[in-house]
Amino acid sequence: MAPVIGKAKAAVDISIAYLTGIRHLFHRPYTLRFPQQRYAVEKGYRGRHLLHLDRCTGCGICAWICPEKCITIVPRGQRWYPQYFYGRCCFCHFCTDYCPEFALEETVEYDIAEYTRDRLVWSPERLSKPPVKKDDKYVFSVDTIGGASQVPQKEE
């Protein structure tokens, strides 16, 4: 009698497993179609750096604290500014924390991949430009009915 009960229980458990999976066919997907649908990160995200040229004194503390040695201090006329090599940057943003003049800032720009290596070297002038506004509007949302998924951000 015991093997029959065991087999019946196994059949029930497998049916429950299948039903649990099938139920999720009708849920919203978790994923985004990336180049068309872009994920919007919140302010405070540690993306690429923004350099305020007017505040920077060229002291070099950012280059000293950088764990990956990706910052070089380069001359521009009478002054010195940091230049970043994003091929090495690990986005720890210790440079932003340690800047005594608040000349560095984190931005929400995360999509900075390039086709060539030399394009990954960001000069002080390029770093000082504010991030390009892209159509980042999808955010991760959890609600009790629809579950978790990426949904377009609500307009404010």
Partner: peptide, 9 residues
Amino acid sequence: DRIFFNNPL
């Protein structure tokens, strides 16, 4: 639990 940990598979 339902789909994996109670699953006889």
